[in-house]
Simulated assay, not measured.
Amino acid sequence: MTTIDPERDLTLDRVIHAPREAVWDAWSTPSLLAKWWVPAPTVARVDRLEVSPGGAFVTSMSADGALFAPHTDSVFLVVEPHRRLVFTNAVDSGWHPAKPEPVAMTAEISLDDHADGTDYRVVVRHGDAAARSRHEALGFFEGWSAVTAALAALAEGGARP
């Protein structure tokens, strides 16, 4: 487990009442990721999902399901199947330095065994305290909590690829 810097990092923890494999599948299967990756009623489209170190993670979102706008353009840095994913939007899927809006971040998703299923942890790292504060003010906890609840509902409901 990596060290948390409370001045620059935002965290979210939840127990998901499903096995790690089901949570992993929801992260690593495009059709499942599209079901929970953005807060409803917004719709997600997974444009590229290459779950390997250096692989692309590109999604779009739509309010009406017809007109899609860019949402995530990032790369995976670390992939430990069924255990850990780390991705950043500071580098885009073409491996070019990026200046993402609203903030540059590196997200670490950890999956650990729990007596009731999966101990799910998100750590989102920022370059400085101002970026962390901006992300929090823009609704980090509301947004990430909403998508984590949708992820949990999907995994707990037994959705499989």
Score class of each variant (00 low, 15 high):
L111P: 13
P97M: 07
S145E: 02
A104K: 09
V123H: 07
D119M: 03
E136D: 15
E101A: 13
A129I: 05
E101I: 08
E101Y: 09
D112Y: 04
A130W: 05
G143C: 00
R121S: 11
P97D: 15
Y120L: 08
G127Y: 04
T118M: 08
F141H: 11
R132F: 06
M105W: 06
V124F: 02
D116W: 04
V123Y: 07
D112P: 05
A130G: 08
T106F: 05
K99H: 12
A107Y: 02
V123W: 06
I109D: 05
V122M: 11
P100K: 09
F140T: 01
V122A: 05
G143K: 00
V123Q: 08
V124N: 08
D112K: 12
Y120H: 10
G117A: 03
D128A: 09
V122L: 15
H135W: 00
K99I: 08
H114K: 07
H96T: 10
V124Q: 14
D128E: 13
A98F: 09
D113N: 10
V103I: 06
P102C: 11
W144Y: 04
E142A: 05
H126P: 15
L111E: 12
W95D: 15
S145M: 01
A131L: 14
V122E: 04
R121Y: 02
M105D: 05
W144Q: 01
I109P: 06
H126D: 13
A104W: 04
H96R: 15
H96C: 10
D113R: 06
E142Q: 06
K99P: 04
R132Y: 08
G127V: 08
G143E: 01
P102Q: 11
T118H: 09
S133M: 08
Y120A: 05
H114S: 13
R125M: 13
R125Q: 15
